[in-house]
């Protein structure tokens, strides 16, 4: 970096390998770690790659904690499925990420029945979460349906009326 560059230069200049402000360099690093951007120059690529993998593993753990049935339903491929889906996709918080992953898998016909049950219950109980925010509970009676799974919510209580069809 250029040691004479003042810290208060706004980070609105074009981004690229010539960036010198701390803000721009931090942004380039985060983009490389979570959004699939190329590694900034000068960093040890293996150490950045290990960090990227560690971040994905940590996210997988957080989503599994918030979406236990989804993760259990994908066992023993949970980590592999999550990492494949999340690589290059910036973190949005476990509630939202599990929701998005379940939707994605549903669209691809790969959502396990336990995941369908869990997504149906979440749809019945909560609004689709904003990134980085906890989901807001639904106040009015509502229902969720994912594949064969049907869940209803009344007065804050969610009930799975019908589970998704299990594989024979």
């Amino acid at each position: 970096m250029n040691p004479t560059s003042p810290a208060n230069v706004p980070a609105t200049q074009p981004t690229g390998p010539t960036e010198t402000t701390l803000a721009a360099r931090q942004a380039a690093l985060v983009a490389a770690l979570v959004a699939g951007a190329p590694p900034p120059p000068g960093f040890v690529p293996e150490a950045l790659a290990a960090t990227r993998t560690a971040l994905l593993r940590k996210r997988a753990g957080e989503v599994a904690r918030y979406w236990p049935l989804l993760a259990t339903g994908l066992h023993p491929r949970w980590l592999e499925v999550f990492q494949h889906w999340a690589a290059g996709r910036p973190p949005a918080g476990a509630p939202r990420e599990g929701w998005d992953l379940a939707r994605y898998l549903h669209g691809a016909g790969e959502l396990p029945p336990l995941g369908a049950d869990e997504l149906a219950c979440r749809q019945a109980g909560y609004h689709y979460p904003e990134p980085g925010r906890p989901p807001r509970p639904r106040r009015l009676p509502s229902w969720g349906r994912v594949g064969g799974a049907v869940a209803i919510q009344f007065a804050g209580r969610v009930r799975l009326l019908r589970p998704a069809r299990r594989q024979p």
Partner: peptide, 20 residues
């Protein structure tokens, strides 16, 4: 730092050990 350029890293990231 844990975020930059509008992106969350989801984890604690190190700073350059610079005066800046």
């Amino acid at each position: 730092f844990v975020r930059a350029g509008g992106l969350e890293a989801g984890h604690l990231l190190p700073l350059p050990r610079s005066r800046e």
